[in-house]
Write a protein that binds this DNA or RNA. Structure first.
Lengths: 203, 203
DNA sequence: TACTTGGTAGAGCGATCGTTCTAAAGGCTG
DNA sequence: CAGCCTTTAGAACGATCGCTCTACCAAGTA
């Protein structure tokens, strides 16, 4: 069906997409900005220009199922951001520093509100929602794999690539939070530069 | 007054402390474990073995004021943890690695539930509660200062000490989240080892 | 004894939460 | 056209939210 007419005019975001996709995107962005518990389903529906009925039609498991889909969306989104940030250089050190710059710019442009799309939800639901935790775990694994691939391509052996990927991912995650709290690009930029130094220190 | 009788038997936690202190500690631990929005004031009162009336007596500003006090408590608590973790060695690299081990052990012993006491609350309230955000900012600054002092004592000049402190703090924060999601000490331990490598790489 | 002060106790308020439910409209196939 | 299935629409439910309010209790002072 799709009942496409929907909205023809200038809509806030996600015009032209199916209802389900609009709901997922709205949920992902809201969870990212204000956490899982702090975001009501009615607000998500409103922001997505959908109705409560639609939300529960596509996500019969309710908020938890919607959150899983939102996390998976954030996973893909952030993985793309990492990839495009890394793509600028073949040197892993340069690539990571450039990646941190990309993240810092995006963070500032969202007025420090849109950091990592899973951290807030992950921390709130740890040990209380296995399905959400699983989705967060897969996201982190995915991002680490993206970094590890870059390091292997840069000449590191598999084990060291994995360890560096784990370290760099943790550092970027933490620096993103720090930058949000400080409302400053500095923590991300500094961390990016020092991660580059680390990568170069034994390559 | 203090109406000390309170509870004489074996109580869950914080027996013998004043009501206000018990409430702050319960709030800090609950915010740390399940976030700000996901924690109700009634639960905090119950966990602290206090009543709603007592909570609002000591915190007339309500949940937000209580959260500020809880963050400040978490600030002191985590600063002590950092300090004691760093105290094991005069070599900054060794000290940081040891610190990561301390954090990893504590995290595992809490069944991966008690990570950084401010991250969850900070992310949920960013840009929506200036007083809470300010308290989180001061906590991060405080912890960074603890690390920077260690680096200066280890022979780094002020500027490099500050940059390394920013990087190491971000990395530890991120690694703590990663360890929680993975339910594994590995991310914290790996990050600690690599941070030691970074510190040694140009000292 | 009477009065004050600092803290305890919890019923109850309006608002909002996640969820369920019924009804109906849109577009396809027969 | 009728029949069907997907999707939209939103009223309504019980539970819980943060918070206010009044009453009460225990010690200190006069």
């Amino acid at each position: 069906m799709k009942t496409k007419p929907q909205d023809a005019g200038a809509s806030p975001a996600g015009a032209g997409l199916g209802t389900r996709e609009r709901v997922v995107r709205a949920a992902s962005r809201l969870f990212q900005r204000q956490g899982y518990e702090g975001t009501g389903i009615k607000l998500i529906a409103q922001e997505a220009e959908a109705t409560l009925g639609s939300v529960y039609h596509f996500f019969p498991d309710g908020k938890e199922g919607l959150a899983v889909a939102a996390i998976q969306h954030g996973d893909r989104e952030f993985a793309e951001m990492l990839s495009s940030g890394l793509a600028g250089s073949d040197d892993p050190a340069e690539a990571v520093e450039n990646c941190a710059r990309t993240l810092a710019t995006a963070l500032r442009e969202s007025d420090w509100a849109e950091g990592c799309p899973v951290t807030a939800t992950a921390l709130e639901t740890l040990g209380r929602s296995p399905s959400i935790q699983q989705a967060c775990l897969e996201a982190l694994r995915n991002w680490q794999a993206v970094l590890a691939a870059k390091f292997r391509a840069g000449g590191f052996d598999a084990e060291e690539a994995e360890e560096l990927a784990c370290t760099v991912l943790s550092a970027l995650e933490g620096a993103e939070v720090t930058s949000q709290v400080f409302r400053s690009e500095t923590p991300l930029l500094t961390t990016g530069r020092r991660m580059a130094q680390l990568i170069r220190s034994r390559s």
